[in-house]
Design a protein around this nucleic acid. Structure first.
Lengths: 121, 121
DNA sequence: TAAACATATGAACAGTTATTCATATGATGA
DNA sequence: TCATCATATGAATAACTGTTCATATGTTTA
């Protein structure tokens, strides 16, 4: 470029498609819901948490059993369970010294089943 | 603790449940598939990419229209489209100077619909 | 009550990631 | 062919995240 100019974007020119953009904007879900969806997927987007969730699909489990199953430290599992807890994806009950975790919601299975279908296409 | 000892984990003691752990391990999906699922969710776990995907649910769009719609720079959108492209979630076609993106797969809608149901419970 | 155990948590660190800025690439039209 | 436009990309940076280590909390049992 001969002159130092701001790089134009088509959105400012005549080549954009304002009708389409507006129409899509109208039909899209609310910003807040999209944020919640992204937040949910973010929780699912870690292999440790995915493995914990898939373990809990099969059975209620205490922390140390999850740690043994995944071959990870108790601390690492506990930290991840906290993330799942904060996202209201797991619930827990105390039995003696152990704490048993299970899935809080049936929707989780549905979401994962769809994801499994996709990756195994 | 009086002595400096390695903190024991129940997995090494008698309080673990090896039968349950083994049974869950047997029924769980393969490690590789779980990694793929986590990888997929990781791509979905960003609000910009969620907004792009949800926009593409409504219509095929060129890059600059997505940028305008989301009120972000063309560069930021382009970088995120590359992530979606590498995950084989979008396809594109050239029409003159513009490049139009669309979703590559119907499964994506299914997964998102389940997620929407969850967050809107 | 004290020791042992299962779990939770705070701090620190390393690795990852999203955006920005500057610039490259590739297509179009004069 | 040259200027312009739409998009892509590399480098840099700031923010975030997962694990580890050390330790705290709360329960059980001797």
């Amino acid at each position: 470029m001969t002159e130092k100019e701001k790089m134009p974007t088509c959105a400012e020119g005549e080549h954009s498609h304002p009708e389409i953009v507006e129409s899509v904007a109208d039909r899209m879900a609310d910003e807040e819901i999209l944020m919640d969806v992204a937040e949910l997927f973010k929780v699912f987007g870690d292999s440790t948490r995915v493995r914990i969730i898939c373990a809990l699909f099969e059975s209620e489990l205490c922390v140390c059993d999850i740690a043994e199953l995944l071959n990870m430290t108790q601390s690492a599992i506990s930290h991840q369970l906290r993330v799942l807890k904060q996202a209201r994806l797991v619930k827990y009950r105390r039995d003696g010294k152990s704490i048993y975790y299970s899935l809080a919601d049936g929707h989780i299975r549905t979401i994962f089943n769809s994801a499994f279908e996709h990756v195994m296409e």
